[in-house]
Amino acid sequence: MPPIRSARNRKPPPEGFEDIEDTLLDFANKMKDAENASHEGKKRHEMIWPIFQITHQRSRYIYDLYYTKEAISKQLYDWLLKNNYADANLIAKWKKTGYEKLCCIRCIQTKETNFNSTCICRVPHDQLQENQSIQCVSCGCRGCASSD
């Protein structure tokens, strides 16, 4: 039986968490607002776009802090991933060439589409038609090819 972890005996987060705590709280509030937002006047698939967007932003924030700004320690980064502050699978994709700006995992799931292809947002802008503006169905992305 795992130990029951209450507020009293919970282990405190690693060093440096208090620096980013405010920003993470902001993201949490935004996420709550997005979850509770009304669906009036929205298409069926549009409703979940903000959820994906906030998740992407928060993951990118933590990724940047650890990999580009080197502002947080390895312990804190692991702790954040473990506690689901960031999407580890998405960050894993960002490390691969060609997926540096990937919007969400769903957009590269070829098996879920009719023609076994990626989402429209993965197509570079120069391969699209002139002035063609797109917004993908799964997360509302307007284009996340690395060459854009």
Binding site: D22, T23, D26, Q57, Y61, D64, A71
Partner: peptide, 9 residues
Amino acid sequence: VNPYTPWES
């Protein structure tokens, strides 16, 4: 500006 905040904010 807090250096820990994201650029968007």
